[in-house]
Each structure stands twice: as C-alpha cells, then as structure tokens.
Design a protein around this nucleic acid. Structure first.
Lengths: 160, 160
DNA sequence: CTAAGAAAGTTGAAAACTTAACCAGTATGG
DNA sequence: CCATACTGGTTAAGTTTTCAACTTTCTTAG
C-alpha cells in the first residue's frame, strides 16, 4: 500500500491527475455542447434521453420505474419530467393492465416525429464534438477502459 | 464523405456506439457517486469544485467572472451559489481595488479547513471509482484521446 | 469630455429538482 | 384470509437553477 503523505492519503500522480481532469472536462463540456445543440429543437438532454429510451423500446412504451432507473433519475423527478413532456405532446401516460399500480410512458406520434427529426442532428453533434475527434484505436481503447468502470459503478450504485 | 442512409445521416457504427455509451454512462454514474460520497460532509460537487478552484488560486481568491467560467456556470448561478456558501461560512466576498465593478470570492479559514478535511476523502473516492480501475496504459491512452477533445470543446464554446 | 455601449455582478420570479410524506395496489407469512 | 410490509407512482414543501431585467463601473469613438 503506497502513501504519499503522513496522513495516509494517496494523492493522484501527475499522470493520474491529467487523465482524471481530461475525463472530467470532456464530460462536462460535452454535455453543455450537446444541450446547446438540442436547444433549437426545444429539447433538453433529459428530454432527448427519454425519447431515445422510449423509441428503442417495444411498442414505444416503458414502465415509469424502468424508465427512471434507465435514465438515472428519481421517481419523483421522472414523474415531473413526464408531466412536462406530456404537456408538450411528446408522450402520454397509459395505465398498465397487469399491475394496476403501474403506468406506462408512451411515445405519441408527435414524439416519434420529433425523434426522427432531431436524431440526425444529435448524432451529427456527437460526431462533431466527440466521435470524429477520436481514431479507431482510441475508440476501442476507450471502450475497453471505460466499460469496466461503468460496470463497477452500476453494481456499486445503492451500496454504501 | 460516407453516409449510411438516404437522408445523408452518418449513424454511429457498433463500435462508435459502444464507446460513446461507455463514456456517457461513466460520466453520469461517476458524478452521481462522487456527489453521494461528498454528501456526508454537507457538500455538493458544485461546492467542492469551487473550493478546489479557490484553494488552488493565488491568495485563495478569484474574481467572480473567472470562477464562473472556470466552473462552467452562469454568472447568475454562481452569484446565488456563492451567497449560499457565504451563509455556510465557507467563502466571503471582497471587493476589488482595481475594478470597482468587480468582486473576489475568497476562501475563509473555515472554507480552507473544510477543504483540507474533505479532499482526502474525495481523492479516495475518485480512486475507488475511477483511477484505480484503470491501468497505467489506460490512463495514458485516456489522456491522449480526451485532451484534444477537451481542447476542441473549450475553443468551440460560445461559437455557433 | 461625453454619450453610447460593454462588462461585472446582483436580483426576483418562474421553472426544475430534491426530499419526504403519502396513497393505492400487490405480495406474503402466519 | 387478513394484517403487514413492500412497490409503483404522485404530491407538497423546500431548495437550486434559469431567465431576463437592472445597477454600477469601465471603455471608447467622436
């Protein structure tokens, strides 16, 4: 066990520091940029993510809980969010046969149209500000490094 | 110029998709986790980031504007934020000699103490959930890939 | 020198988010 | 069965964030 100071803290080395900051900076700047690129369409990142999830789901619908965990939001937040999107005509709530407590969030026709219209711009944005700046080997390495981290975080979630 | 569909959109390949999702997932899950680990100390990520910036600055002080851009927040948001931290005793405002419009946010003694107390836990958290999950070569590669992206985003910021 | 515009910050109201309490329906264990 | 606990989801109250308007000071073109 290595330690750098008398109190036992293992501070980050130069190299670690640089990698960490790079990840942090990209993560934040990128979110900002994507948000800005969605703005002209009247969508937030959050809206878009929900549209994506519903679009990719069977029957364009998802149980509220599942959607909440998929998008990493609290039930409460999602509930508000869906209410707003419902008012905007992008989704509607539909209740669930098999479990009468449950609700589905369902993509409306308009929501689907919106998705089809916006997605190309979004993917262009992702390319311009991320993917196309990385080489093939970068992408492979990135995935190789980050997938385990994501896995770790997913399983850690909720514990301690 | 490659295109995959009739409307000219270059969708992401499998590999691109995976890398992008991995980055996205890590970025969001990690922020959540760090936030949670700061919670016992009564700090948010935002609070902590401001403390870091001030701690690393000459005289433990920074102009509001500079702090706002450094932390990627609007002036308004920072103003509210600093007010809260001022009420919490972590920072104080001090006005600037050379430009009478300007203000400094200054770390208080208590703010500095807090920083000293919390930093070791935070770095441990960063290690546990990110750095220590990556090998030396991962770190190098990560930095090599992401630093240019960060650079691109920093210069792009504000344009278009 | 001065009027017009830009920059630094603040403010207050509206929108979004969090937290905790809550209701209704479902599972379960005695 | 039926009391108890759990799940899915909403709601209310409090906090944070955004948005637009505003004040004060600085800069600069004329």
């Amino acid at each position: 066990m290595s330690m750098d100071t008398e109190n036992g803290t293992r501070w980050l080395s130069e190299e670690e520091q640089r990698a960490w900051r790079a990840h942090l900076d990209v993560s934040r700047l990128l979110m900002h940029q994507l948000e800005r690129d969605l703005q002209p369409f009247g969508l937030t990142n959050n809206d878009y993510e929900i549209l994506v999830n519903l679009s990719e789901s069977e029957d364009h619908r998802m149980r509220m809980s599942d959607l909440a965990t998929a998008t990493l939001q609290s039930k409460s937040r999602l509930s508000h969010q869906i209410t707003r999107m419902e008012n905007a005509g992008l989704v509607r709530r539909e209740n669930c046969e098999s479990d009468r407590r449950g609700l589905y969030a369902v993509l409306t026709e308009q929501g689907w149209e919106t998705m089809r219209k916006v997605a190309p711009h979004h993917v262009a944005s992702v390319r311009e500000h991320f993917i196309d700046l990385l080489g093939d080997s970068d992408l492979k390495a990135l995935y190789g490094s980050l997938a385990p981290v994501a896995q770790h975080l997913r399983t850690t979630r909720g514990r301690v």
